[in-house]
Computed example of a mutant assay.
Amino acid sequence: MNDIDAWVWWLVGAAALGIPLVMTAMPEFGMFAVGAVAAAVAAGLGAGVVLQVLVFVVVSVALISVVRSLAARYTVQRPQLATGIDALKGKQAVVLERVDGTGGRIKLAGEVWSARALDTDRTYEVGQQVDVVDIEGATAIVL
């Protein structure tokens, strides 16, 4: 064991940290593996054990802090493009069958939808333009 250089041990450690990275999909293991590779480079350049460990810790912590802050920034942002049901809210539709508080039919985004009026006392006649305010299941709520 004494005849194996320290940089080899760091590379073995990097490979060992790569296994749980692949198995668990936890990126922190990958960052520790990169820190181990950096420590292997330091060991290959002749740095002492204390400096090797320091390089491992500094690189690993720096990567974790940078990647976590970037990940937090992207998880807070909502997608700019509305898709699915969210894309239909606020759109205009044309009444195909009389719509009241109990039901009716509209043409929304080229498709026929069941619909009902938001205000149960209100009715919308055929050909009238309505605004979709919400979608409940397969029913558009119109105003």
Rank of each mutant, 00 (worst) to 15 (best):
V76C: 06
A43S: 04
I64P: 00
G44C: 04
I85R: 11
A43N: 01
T83D: 05
I85F: 09
P79W: 07
V76E: 05
A47P: 04
V59E: 00
G44A: 15
I85S: 13
A71L: 07
I64G: 03
A62Q: 03
L63P: 02
V58D: 03
A62D: 00
R73C: 01
V57M: 12
V61S: 06
A82K: 15
M23K: 10
V49G: 00
L54N: 06
V34I: 15
R73T: 01
V41P: 10
V66N: 03
I85V: 14
A47K: 00
V67R: 14
A62W: 01
L51R: 13
F56Q: 02
Y74D: 07
T75Q: 12
V37C: 12
Q80N: 11
V58G: 02
V57Q: 03
V22P: 02
L45P: 09
P27T: 09
V50G: 08
S60P: 05
S69M: 13
G48R: 13
A38E: 00
S60G: 03
G46I: 01
V76N: 10
P79S: 14
V50P: 02
M26R: 12
I85P: 04
S65T: 12
L70P: 06
T75G: 08
Q80E: 13
M26H: 13
A82V: 08
